[in-house]
Nucleic acid binder design. Sequence first.
RNA 1: GCGGCUGUAGUCUAGUCUGGUUAGGACUUGGGCCUUCCAAGCCUACGACCCGGGUUCAAAUCCCGGCAGCCGCACCA
Length: 578
Amino acid sequence: MIHMKHDKVMNIAKKRGFLWSSFEIYAGVAGFYDYGPLGALLKDLIIDKWKNYYIIREGFYEIESPTVMPEEVLKASGHVDNFTDPMTECKECLEVYRADHIIEEMINRDVEGLSNEELTQIISEEKVMCPRCGGHLTKVWNYNLMFQTLIGAKGKKTGYMRPETAQGIFIPFKRLLRFFRGKLPFGVVQVGKAYRNEISPRQGVIRLREFTQAEAEIFVNPEDKTHERFHEIKDTMLKLYSGEIQLAEGEPVEISAGDAHDKGIVSSQILIYQLYIAQKFLRELGIPDEVIRFRQHLPTEMAHYAIDCWDVEVYTEKYGWVEIIGIADRTDFDLKSHTEHSNEDLRVFIEHDVPKMVKKLTIKPNMSKFGPYFKEDAPKIIKALEDIDVEEVKKSIESDNAFNIQIEDKNFELLPEHLNFEEIEEIIRGEKIFPHVIEPSYGIDRIVYSVLLHTFTEDNEREYFKLPKEIAPVEVSVFPLLNKKELNQIALKIRGDLRDNGFIAQFDTSGTIGRRYARSDEIGVPFAITVDHESLDDKKVTIRNRDDLKQKRVLISDIPEILDDLMKSKIEFEDITQ
RNA sequence: GCGGCUGUAGUCUAGUCUGGUUAGGACUUGGGCCUUCCAAGCCUACGACCCGGGUUCAAAUCCCGGCAGCCGCACCA
């Protein structure tokens, strides 16, 4: 199959320094890509924009945690045990299979959740053979997608490269909760590398072994998944491809955020709000609506920890619909699991709106009798009574006139005169709960690819990335109309001024003016400034708009201000006064 | 990981079957000339046989192994 656009985009990306495969002079390694000079800038600008959305607009805070994680963490998260596939290999033809799949296929038996040993046993007992050549299969082994490493000089401690940035946020939850002064909801983000040792990654930058994630973990009260700004977005249209529609083999439907909530298509306001943010973000990166859709995970494909999960997918000619963002309700799975494994209480105290009054029967030892009777054993007994079922004691006393209690192999008989029962009213101000986690997870590399693919434009024999100016790696080009010393001097001076004003500006004298414009357009530079002979007299230059080729003549001294206004969208190009 | 196909400058490609001078061309890129606004022209320079081993007097060319890419299978919390 020919993928003209993909091939063109990747060729230009390689040629002009956006992206290329890593370790090229050593033939490369599949699943690793370098960002070149322009690619690194572009990626940073996209991440900046992402942070602008999540940190500034949503009010979340960013943290940074290590990419190497000790085994315990990933044991608790389930990655050590579950981020694996059981594999088996044919001894004859060396074909590799998913062990569970082959058993289900060959003998039609559900083996989900069985251990490798059990799978191996089934294979030998049921005589499951290689479906291709009939050969014997090896015993089942786990292929874990994580990169394993050893921590420390003696290498006794097993570590893994993190398979997602999320875990780095769950681990310091107690400190984060304290930072946010104990109140839900709050959000924490992390941008960084994650690692998955894919068996055979062959989808370019779409499937990398080392990739960049931008994730937010939003901790919410499970009883309250509303969003305070939902009313502002309820009329926004979203193209939803729900599980139900997928099963019915239907088409995605355009539906308003409000309806999506009212009809229960998306499980909560806060989840829909995240879909809305994702859509807005992608639009502003120059990805058109037609190639964006939200696809709900089917119950069968949903991760074990999630109750609802939507992928934001972008259409690509080469790979079809590609997940570039995953938005999941992870519930309390992670915090609960880390609580069990670490013995740290990762719950949050939720104060009730109105304190609850609870009537409760308590035991009050009658110390004037109790003390002298039990003497040195009295404190022990009192302590034991604190943890005991009061109703049971009361019943026993009422029916048998005694209650027997065992402490350290000794029996004590409590008599009615030793105890008073009192009904007290207790005030319950709140309860401890595990927050639920809403997680938008952005695959930055896939987004960079989508942006390049979908901003790539061919018109009038021009081929260029029509990057929104906000994410253009180079903001302005400065050229002499002709490669003459006196023009170059002025152009260099202008470039210097622009750099002093914080713009990324480039200067180019090679070839003719047309070629220079073409080179500048190709990498998506939104504006070009050209110095001509008249500039020597009138101190004016032309400024050219990439997208419509229009030009305006402006004073050299006004350039930094004009460009600043243009870049910040305070004015449009046609508003420039000559 | 398995099978098939492929691997020559930044890009596209000639040469490989049939081993033999200094691996040829086009585009791109750098420098220069020319040129008063959108990849023009001229001069000039830089730049390649995927890696390793074998056969041979001699390997881009034949053989073996590796790596990478593409396609199919498998895999894809």
